[in-house]
Simulated assay, not measured.
Amino acid sequence: MGAKVIQRLSMDLREAFPDMKGLSSNNLKYMRFFAQNCPDLRFGQQSADQLPWLHIVTLVTKMGTSELQEWYGRETIKQTVSAEIL
């Protein structure tokens, strides 16, 4: 998908859903990258649904393997839960 298509999609989505956040061109590119790199959604079903978007972007763009992505996701959730208990 070309940059202009993503840019147009971003504008259309923001117009259709004015109260929704996260529909920038960059976020749409990250969403596409996530979908391409996690096609089985195995990671998404475990940890990603409990993480903020920035952590998910970090996982799919900076962590090399799915094993490392899953480890980072689990550890982030553990640390977050530990901090909330304190």
Rank of each mutant, 00 (worst) to 15 (best):
A16Q: 15
F17G: 02
F17M: 10
P18K: 03
P18S: 03
D19H: 13
D19R: 11
M20V: 15
M20S: 07
M20Y: 07
M20E: 12
K21M: 05
K21R: 14
G22Q: 02
G22M: 00
S24M: 01
S24D: 05
S25H: 02
N26G: 05
L28G: 04
K29F: 04
Y30A: 09
Y30N: 14
M31L: 13
M31V: 10
M31K: 09
R32I: 15
F33R: 05
F34Q: 05
A35K: 13
A35R: 14
A35G: 08
Q36C: 08
Q36V: 04
N37E: 09
N37V: 04
N37T: 14
C38F: 10
C38Y: 12
C38R: 06
P39T: 12
P39L: 11
P39E: 09
P39C: 06
P39W: 07
D40L: 12
L41H: 14
L41C: 12
L41A: 12
F43I: 08
F43Y: 08
F43K: 10
F43S: 10
G44I: 02
G44Q: 09
Q45P: 00
Q45K: 11
Q45E: 14
Q45R: 15
Q46N: 07
S47F: 06
S47R: 05
A48L: 07
A48K: 00
A48Y: 13
D49H: 13
D49F: 09
D49E: 12
Q50I: 00
Q50S: 09
Q50D: 05
L51D: 03
L51C: 06
L51E: 03
P52T: 04
P52L: 11
W53V: 10
W53F: 14
W53R: 04
W53C: 03
L54S: 15
L54G: 08
L54C: 15
H55Q: 10
H55E: 07
I56M: 08
V57H: 01
V57D: 02
T58V: 07
T58S: 08
T58G: 05
T58M: 06
L59W: 04
V60C: 05
V60S: 01
V60E: 08
V60N: 00
V60K: 00
V60A: 01
